[in-house]
Design a binder for these strands. Structure first.
Lengths: 210, 210
DNA sequence: TCTCTTCCTGACCGTATGGTCAGATTGCAG
DNA sequence: CTGCAATCTGACCATACGGTCAGGAAGAGA
């Protein structure tokens, strides 16, 4: 029953508690939505008194904003895998892999993001209109270049991107449905690989690079 | 300023008000989520006093359950288009058309459904485990039959279904994102047709029937 | 017309929520 | 060791929420 006597540094305390709160918040927001989530529940999950949450994050909305921002960063960086690619098959295949991994490893964050967009993006509309718009334009141009060079079938780049987002994100957002249809059990390692293979197979053949 | 003097029949009153409330509820639940929606706001949108809502629907959860049930019916019936098909291309193409039309015509309902599943299906878990499971098994078997007959490429039927759901539903659930990336304007008639065509093109080629 | 049932609604209630604050505790610089 | 600033938290507050209810208004059947 001896307690760790080591005193904590100020920096450590702040970093640790912020992380603790953000993790708890992500989970609770994912499960209950912004409106359904309560600061009390987040505090309980984080193992801190509610008043302590308000010490680190002034309002519920500020905390929520941070959670959404975090997942948005992860989401955006998945595109790096698409850039260095030699071929369309390689680039888009890697992007699918990356986004499927996000769905698997950050299901809560994915749900929070989906929920935010679904409700009209009340707090991250500016992101959509700047960062995301630029990002999308860039990738659409890259895909269009591939098409112009005759390296893949002529499809609408925008709708291809939507399909990639939708399909990969589905495994996080509708994970509960998938789990139910899987006999109530989460997908196994092998099943995740099969899912990735299926998605890549259909889409890559669909754009004529298989 | 003359008011319509015709007295309303009992049946009419009930049917009209229930419809009015359900429509308002669908909209509000879609915009705010279950937790974020308030009976007061639904009442305002419906143009009725809040107490009147509780006369027709005892609790918020009962009202929500009805909204979810309604969209689930529509969602399930979209599969009828898949059944009478002569070829896989025809059947799956028609299913994509039907589900894209649902996304377009019932975006609010689609969002409510997505939100419900995303949050672990707290009120319609039984549907998932019975109706949806049977439905899915049936369609997967149909697709598998097509594959066995060599009429389409050998893909995992389950993951193909997920891709169909994800891609079509995306145009409703992430409609705000799509709208933002479309310069802030909703998709036009022509753009919706282009979207349908793109989705069908990629998927149908992806399963080797184009 | 009269009676019964359905429909309607303003006022009200208990509770839970987001947020505040004064004061205790604790790491840290000098 | 001392003083300061950062961290912590139980108690508290105003508000908004879901839901109730008594009593009035209005069709329906005789």
């Amino acid at each position: 029953m001896n307690e760790t006597p080591r005193p904590m540094r100020r920096n450590e305390i702040r970093a640790m508690n912020e992380t603790l709160i953000l993790q708890a918040a992500e989970k609770v927001f994912a499960e209950a939505g912004f409106g359904g989530a309560t600061m009390q529940l987040i505090a309980d999950v984080a193992g801190l008194p509610k008043a302590n949450l308000h010490y680190y994050f002034a309002t519920k909305e500020e905390l929520y904003r941070r959670v959404v921002g975090n997942i948005f960063e992860i989401w955006l960086h998945a595109a790096d895998s698409m850039d260095g690619a030699e071929t369309p098959a390689e680039g888009i295949g890697a992007y699918i892999d990356a986004k499927m991994d996000i769905s698997r490893r950050h299901p809560d964050g994915s749900k929070v993001w989906a929920s935010e967009v679904m409700h009209g993006a009340p707090v991250i509309q500016d992101y959509l209109e700047t960062t995301l718009r630029d990002w999308t334009a860039g990738r659409a141009a890259l895909i269009q270049r591939w098409i112009d060079e005759g390296r893949m079938a002529p499809v609408d780049p925008q709708h291809l991107l939507y399909m990639l987002w939708a399909t990969t994100q589905h495994y996080a957002d509708f994970g509960h449905q998938i789990e139910t249809l899987n006999g109530g059990k989460p997908l196994s390692e092998a099943q995740w690989n099969a899912a990735k293979a299926s998605v890549k197979q259909i889409i890559l053949r669909g754009i004529g690079v298989l």
